[in-house]
Amino acid sequence: MKPISYSNPKLDEVTVSTKPVFEGNIISLQIDTVKLPDGGTASREIVRHPGAVAVLAIHDDKIILVDQYRQAMGRCELEIPAGKLEKGEDPLEAAKRELQEETGYTCQQIRLLHSFYTSPGFADELIHLYVAEGLESGEAVPDEDEFLELYELTLQEALEAVKSGRISDAKTIMAVYAWKLQQLTGEFRI
């Protein structure tokens, strides 16, 4: 499910100008001058991101996670397999690719659970969260600059990891709670 486009004439801001500030390999930064609903103007710092995918994968009643160092956080983080979309890449294919690259697992079925923005106050990154089922193990082939350790946690262990802060990123917390909801209702949903 892709987020809907919604407009409210009483709140909408109109872009007057855009000033590019930085163009990196993954993100770009721009400063927009916007006209406010009351006629005034303001500056908005915007991070542009190509979008990403994340995969909630359960195997033998355990969630598949990867542990990796996150420079922005200054520490390691347990996360569901995830990665950015390549230009023009179909999110479904990217989800399959990331699952296999980071964990070695392939899946018989995969479906979109939900799409969500990570930080809409300053970034346009849209993550597509998939559920993968019918997993088969294989050989992981992470990117050249990715160093990962595979973890498989029970639901209780994953909930404890959230509680302790070992899992602290939004996509993984959302996945853990979607799994918990599935255990209660019999279906994956958000």
Rank of each mutant, 00 (worst) to 15 (best):
G134Q: 12
E160V: 11
I127M: 13
H114C: 09
F147R: 09
A94Y: 11
I173N: 10
R97A: 13
I127W: 05
L113V: 06
H114W: 11
L112M: 15
E139R: 14
Y130H: 13
M174V: 11
D124S: 04
K171Q: 00
K96R: 15
G104R: 04
S137R: 15
V141I: 15
L150D: 07
E157S: 08
I167G: 01
L155S: 02
V176Y: 01
E125L: 02
E152T: 14
T154G: 05
R166I: 08
Q156M: 10
E160H: 12
V176T: 00
T172A: 06
A140V: 06
R97E: 15
D145Q: 04
T172Y: 04
A123P: 02
G134L: 14
S115W: 00
Y151R: 11
M174E: 07
Y130M: 10
D169F: 03
G134K: 12
Q109G: 09
F116W: 05
E157Y: 03
G104C: 09
E101A: 13
T118G: 03
Q109K: 13
L150N: 09
E152L: 13
S168K: 09
G165S: 04
L135F: 09
G104D: 05
E160D: 14
E133S: 15
A132Q: 05
T106C: 09
L129T: 01
L150S: 07
H128W: 15
L113Y: 04
A170E: 15
E136D: 09
A140D: 04
S164A: 07
Y105R: 01
E139L: 13
F122D: 01
G104Y: 07
Y151I: 12
E102A: 01
Q100N: 13
I173A: 12
S119H: 07
A175S: 13
Y151P: 07
Q100W: 05
Q156I: 05
T172L: 03
K171C: 00
S115Y: 03
F116Q: 06
A161L: 04
G138S: 02
L153H: 09
L148W: 11
L129P: 03
E102P: 00
F116N: 02
H114K: 14
E133H: 11
H128K: 05
L113G: 03
S168E: 08
L150H: 07
C107V: 03
H114T: 15
S164C: 07
E160T: 14
D124T: 10
I173F: 08
L155I: 02
Y117I: 01
G138E: 01
T172K: 05
R97C: 10
L150M: 11
A170C: 09
K163S: 14
L135C: 05
Q100T: 11
S119I: 09
S115G: 06
L113S: 06
A123G: 01
E98V: 15
E125P: 00
